[in-house]
Simulated assay, not measured.
Amino acid sequence: MQPEQESDRNGDERRRYPRVAVETPGRFLAPDGSEHQCALRDISIGGIAISSPVPLQIGAQIIVYIDDFGRFEGKIVRVFDGGFAIETAISGPRRERLQQRLEALARGEKIDVSARRAFARYVPGEAGLEESSVLTMTDGSSIPCRIIDMSLGGAQVAIDPRPMIGTQVSIGKMQGRIVRHTEEGVGIQFTNVPEHSNALSRPFG
């Protein structure tokens, strides 16, 4: 019973932050490395509640990608029928952006999805990833680059010189091809959309 009592105390602590009920899909990486579909149930600055039939234990560390919100890491502090809740620690500009978004949602405003792609796209800070990376060609040569934004389906990177459109490249664990040139660099379409734990956890590392 001790874990449940501890969970209750953690839950009381998290309620300092207003929760906003939001239904949006996502995926999470379980401690055993398996990947599962899930859905956001509610979210606050201090944590999120996830709907999922997958049984997990209090104290387990997981990684969650939520459409329109990005990547979160946290410890499970509560389990309930049909899901679980994790405690998160967000700071800096990302915390401010999330706070503004939650306040807007609480007022009944909708998240702007006019530019949404097949996969939600995030800047590195929102996904908890570093901007600096390396683009590698099929011949083994590589060029330092900076990730502008990314999704599970592709990325935009700042790079000079720019490889030709159609060039097969890899960035971190992801393989893809150059599909367009941009003012700062290139757009990459991934050819191995993540379906495994390592790619979901650290796609560019």
Rank of each mutant, 00 (worst) to 15 (best):
G92K: 13
R116P: 00
V22G: 08
P124K: 10
E87G: 13
R78W: 15
Y17W: 14
D8F: 10
V186R: 05
E6L: 13
A127D: 07
D160H: 11
I159C: 08
I90Y: 06
P124E: 12
F204P: 08
A21C: 03
E96L: 15
K75M: 11
S142A: 15
S132Q: 12
I66D: 01
R97C: 04
C38D: 01
R9V: 12
A104E: 10
G153A: 10
G176M: 13
Q168T: 02
A39V: 01
F204W: 15
G185V: 01
Q168R: 13
R78G: 05
A30M: 06
D139H: 08
S91F: 05
V79Y: 03
V64E: 04
I90V: 15
I178D: 04
V77K: 06
N198H: 10
I178A: 11
L152G: 03
D8I: 12
A39E: 02
R27S: 05
F190G: 05
S151P: 00
Y122H: 11
E183S: 08
S7D: 05
S197F: 00
V179S: 03
N10L: 15
I159Q: 05
R180T: 04
V186K: 04
R180H: 13
L29F: 02
Y17D: 09
E130T: 12
G92N: 13
I188V: 15
I43K: 06
E103P: 02
D67T: 01
D160Q: 10
L98I: 15
R202S: 13
V22W: 07
P203I: 15
R27K: 14
I148R: 14
E109V: 00
E103H: 03
H181P: 04
T191G: 13
M174A: 06
L40V: 01
S132C: 06
A49T: 07
D32Y: 02
P53C: 06
I159M: 09
I63D: 08
E109M: 11
G176Q: 09
V79R: 14
D112N: 15
E23C: 02
A89G: 01
T88K: 09
G92D: 14
L129M: 11
M150G: 03
I178W: 06
R14D: 10
E87F: 04
R78M: 09
G92F: 10
A30T: 10
R95A: 15
V113S: 13
R41Y: 04
L200K: 03
